[in-house]
């Protein structure tokens, strides 16, 4: 059942992104940025955690979930260390994924070459 919800919710969030691509002049970079900020806002409004409880990775894997992670990190850190936590919490919570991206990028740059799309 969890797998079905993950598929449906994750798929729906992606289909919504596709509508933004097709119906607006937004570029992919703007949509990614918008999704993360929207994730922070939805999380702040308390609307995103219920979706995570329902769909698991269906809600955390799309970039809205990245925004939720940042917002949750900030809140948790504020609880632990006060106002300073607002600055440390977000990126700390997201550090595993971000550092993995950077490490994979460097490794791929060393190993792989640019390819023609044809």
């Amino acid at each position: 059942m969890n797998f079905l919800w993950a598929f449906v919710v994750g798929g729906a969030l992606c289909a919504a992104g596709q509508l933004l691509l097709d119906l607006t002049a937004l570029t992919p970079a703007r949509i990614l940025t918008g999704y993360v900020v929207a994730g922070v806002a939805l999380s702040a409004a308390g609307l995103y955690q219920p979706l995570v409880d329902l769909a698991g990775a269906g809600a955390t894997v799309p970039l809205l979930g990245f925004g939720h992670l940042l917002a949750q990190g900030a809140v948790d850190a504020v609880e632990r260390r006060g106002l300073l936590g607002a600055l440390t919490g977000g990126l700390s919570a997201a550090s595993a994924g971000v550092t993995a991206c950077l490490a994979c990028g460097l490794l791929a740059a060393l190993l792989a070459d640019s390819r023609d799309q044809n």
């Binding site: 570029t27 992919p28 640019s114 390819r115 023609d116 799309q117 044809n118």
Partner: peptide, 18 residues
């Protein structure tokens, strides 16, 4: 050249922007 133009004016060749 498609590849030279893409990487200079648009996005990396491996990027998945539609």
């Amino acid at each position: 050249h498609f590849c030279a133009a893409e990487r200079q004016f648009r996005t990396p060749l491996g990027y998945g922007g539609k």
